[in-house]
């Protein structure tokens, strides 16, 4: 195994929650996401359909955790991760969503991410740095609604 590319700085970063991001779950966002996927269940499009099935409002389709609230000048998280990795190219290795409560239009969700693990491997595409991350999504009333587990591959 070649020398580790995981610096002391990166190692110290494991388990430390990053800055908070805010996402808004809007009916428009839910519909656009559902349309992009090709969902046919009306609960992802129509408030009355959602309410008749016991939901508060239009339901966020699986994998939709709201639209990030951007402000000019703010850099997105992947830029910071790219800056930390010695490798230039990046791939999304995989994502898992875990739900604790339904997410509906009108929800404002605050999220924080942390690195949980680094793995270094020799792949068919050369040396790779795999960064495992976990993001928690909390509704405004303090309820944990979802977690996302993901890994990014730098190579």
């Amino acid at each position: 195994m070649a020398e580790s590319v995981v610096s002391d700085d990166m190692r110290a970063h494991i388990g430390v929650e990053g800055s908070e991001s805010i996402s808004e779950v809007t009916s428009t966002g839910c519909r656009l996401f559902a349309h992009a996927v090709g969902h046919t269940d009306p609960i992802f499009y129509d408030r009355e359909a959602a309410r008749s099935r016991g939901f508060r409002d239009v339901v966020a389709p699986p994998g939709f955790l709201g639209s990030a609230v951007f402000r000019p000048g703010e850099r997105i998280d992947t830029d910071r991760l790219m800056a930390r990795s010695p490798y230039r190219r990046i791939l999304n290795g995989g994502t898992t969503f875990e739900y604790f409560e339904p997410i509906c239009a009108g929800d404002v969700v605050r999220s924080r991410s942390k690195v949980t693990e680094y793995q270094e491997r020799q792949g068919s595409i050369g040396p790779m740095l795999i960064t495992f991350r976990e993001t928690s999504y909390v509704r405004e009333d303090g309820t944990l609604v979802a977690k996302m587990y993901g890994n990014l591959i730098n190579y």
Partner: peptide, 24 residues
Amino acid sequence: AFLGQLLHDWVAPRGAVRKFGCTY
């Protein structure tokens, strides 16, 4: 997200997707 739909369509209307994911 397609896999999320696969599960949702199987369990709807009364079931729910608790957790799903894949590697690319």
